[in-house]
Design a protein around this nucleic acid. Sequence first.
DNA 1: GTGTTGACCCCAA
DNA 2: TTTGGGGCCAACA
Length: 108
Amino acid sequence: MQQNFYEQVYEIVKLVPKGRVTTYGAIAKALGMARSSRLVGTAIIQAHDPNLKVPAHRVVNRNGLLTGKHHYQTPTQMQDLLEADGIEVKDDQVQNFKKVFWDPLTEL
DNA sequence: GTGTTGACCCCAA
DNA sequence: TTTGGGGCCAACA
């Protein structure tokens, strides 16, 4: 199954509904690699390919902090995309994070 | 093949 | 509360 675990990560992220966000740890746990949450981040970095259509902006760290915004074309890209989805972002932090948080383990 | 890095997470002080 | 250290495993040099 996990021939490309990148693809597994992409699948989960693509399942994230609009107006919701998920975390690296949640994805890692959903894939059974809870202790390898860093790999999820690495996978997301490679997810910049438009062909994959992976909404990487909907993936944040455990604190709801936009850790990867600096990896975007512009530092405001990620926040802008999140706000476009109806997610409040303040000071690189997702507001109402508990509300917009989408847990693949619970929702799936 | 070895060493360093990293969109992270958890625990202790 | 904020800081510091350890662990985890793939990708990169």
